[in-house]
Design a protein around this nucleic acid. Structure first.
Lengths: 222, 222
DNA sequence: GTAGCACGACTCCTCAGACAAGTAGACGAG
DNA sequence: CTCGTCTACTTGTCTGAGGAGTCGTGCTAC
C-alpha cells in the first residue's frame, strides 16, 4: 500500500542507515564511511545524505566531528517513552500512576506550602465546576491530581506524572463515554477528603485516599 | 568559557530555533517562515538551516511538508530521561525509586510465580556472595531488587526501575566508598525478610520492608 | 632510537545556485 | 455556488566550490 505522500529521500536514507546500524554493520563508536563514498552508495546527493545524518544526530544515534568523521553513538534509537506507554496495557500504566501518586501524596502532606494548598483548593473548585462535559472533567481531574504531585516538590515524580497523563487521558475519556457514571457527589467528596488530608499533614490518610481512588479507577479501566 | 570544539552552525541554528519555539513565537501546528526568509534572518545559508530543521525533526519538534512549509509538532523537545535524572537531585531520584519499588513489592507479593521466587532466591544468594568488593556488591544488590520489580509483572514499573539504576549506581558506590558500612549482617537479614514476605504473599510486610530499606538508603545519600 | 614537528590526505562544514516536485490560494468559467 | 486551472510560493534534491579541522606519515633534531 503506497502512501499518498512519498517519503522524502532524506528520510528514506535515514531509515536505511539506521537499519544498517541495527544490523551491526558499524559497531558502537565506529566511524561511518565518508560522505563522498556513502552518498553514491545510497544513491542520493551529498546534501541529502547530510540531512539524513543530521536527522539521526537529532535522535542521538550519530555524532559527527569535523575533520574526523561520523560516528555511531547508539546502536538503536532510544525508545520513546510515549511509545513504551502506548504499547503497555492501560492497567500497567495506571498501576505505575498508583505507585508515584500515592508516594507523592505522602510527600505532599509533609512538604506542602501554603501556596501549594491554595493551588490544590483552586484546582478542586475548578474540578467541581466541570462536571458535565466529559473531556473538560477529565482534564480538570488530572489538573487537580497534578497539583498534589507538584506539592510533593519532587521533579522526577512530577515528570513521571506528566508522561503518564496523555496515555491515560484517552483511556479515561473513552471509559467515561461508555459508563456515564462520573462526577457524582461521592466521587467529589473523596477528592475533598484527599485535599483535607494534605492540608492536615496527615500522610497516612493522604496515601489511603489516593490509593483508594486510583484502585477504583483501575477496576473501571480493566 | 569557550569549548575546545566550536559548535557547528547548524547545531547553533537548531538551538536558536528551539529557543524561539519555546518562547512561543510559533504555536503548536503553526507554520514557520519559509527557508528562504528564515535563513538570512538567522545569518546562515539555506542548506545549513535545512540541516538544523532536520535535526529538530529527528527530535520530534518540527515536521516539513514539501510545498506547504515547516510546522511545529511539539512545543518543546521531549527531554531525555537520562538528562532529567542527572539534573535532578539524588534524593529526588531515590524518592521516585521508593514510589515504584514499594508498589512493585506489593504487586510482587500478589503475583509472584514459582519461577519469580527462584530468581529472587538466586539473586539473594548472589548478593550474599558479593560482600567485599563495593562495585559488585552494588550491582548484586540492584540485581536482587530488580528481580522483585520483575515479579510484579508490570513492564512500566520495570522500565522505570531500569532507568533509575544507572544514576543511583554512581551515587551508591561513591557513598559506600566514604562510609565503609555495607554488607553487614543486619542489612542482609533485612533483604532475606523481604524475600520471605514476597514468598508468603504478605503484601503489607513486603511494602514495609521495602520502604524501610529505601528510607535508610535515602538518609545515607542525603 | 626517540621525541617533536611539518606536511598532506582526508574529513566534515558552509555557502550559493539551479531545477524539480508539491501545495494552496486566487480567479474565472460554467 | 462549484469546479477546474493557473500561478506564486514552498520544500526537495543535486552539484560545485572553498573553508576548517583532524589524523597519520615521514622527516628532522637530539
Amino acid at each position: 500500500m503506497a502512501q499518498v505522500t512519498r517519503e522524502p529521500l532524506a528520510d528514506q536514507a535515514a531509515e536505511l542507515l539506521l537499519d544498517r546500524i541495527r544490523a551491526g554493520e558499524w559497531g558502537l563508536g565506529e566511524k561511518l564511511p565518508g560522505e563522498t563514498t556513502l552518498a553514491p552508495q545510497l544513491g542520493v546527493g551529498r546534501s541529502t545524505l547530510r540531512e539524513a545524518i543530521r536527522q539521526l544526530a537529532g535522535r542521538g544515534v550519530l555524532a559527527s566531528r569535523q575533520g574526523a568523521g561520523v560516528f555511531v553513538t547508539a546502536l538503536d534509537a532510544p525508545e520513546d517513552w510515549d511509545t513504551v506507554l502506548r504499547r503497555a496495557g492501560i492497567v500497567a500504566v495506571i498501576e505505575a500512576r498508583i505507585a508515584i501518586e500515592t508516594e507523592a501524596a505522602a510527600l505532599a502532606a509533609a512538604r506542602r506550602t501554603p501556596g501549594d494548598l491554595r493551588a490544590i483548593r483552586r484546582a478542586l473548585a475548578e474540578r467541581a465546576a466541570h462536571r458535565s462535559d466529559i473531556e473538560s472533567h477529565v482534564d480538570a481531574d488530572t489538573a487537580f491530581h497534578r497539583t498534589i504531585v507538584a506539592a510533593a516538590h519532587n521533579p522526577v515524580l512530577l515528570d513521571l506524572f506528566d508522561s503518564f497523563t496523555p496515555r491515560l487521558r484517552e483511556a479515561m475519556i473513552e471509559m467515561l463515554r461508555i459508563r456515564r457514571e462520573f462526577g457524582d457527589d461521592a466521587d467529589h467528596d473523596a477528592h475533598v477528603e484527599q485535599a483535607d488530608a494534605i492540608a492536615a499533614r496527615d500522610e497516612q490518610a493522604a496515601t489511603a485516599h489516593s490509593r483508594a481512588h486510583l484502585l477504583t479507577l483501575r477496576e473501571a479501566l480493566a
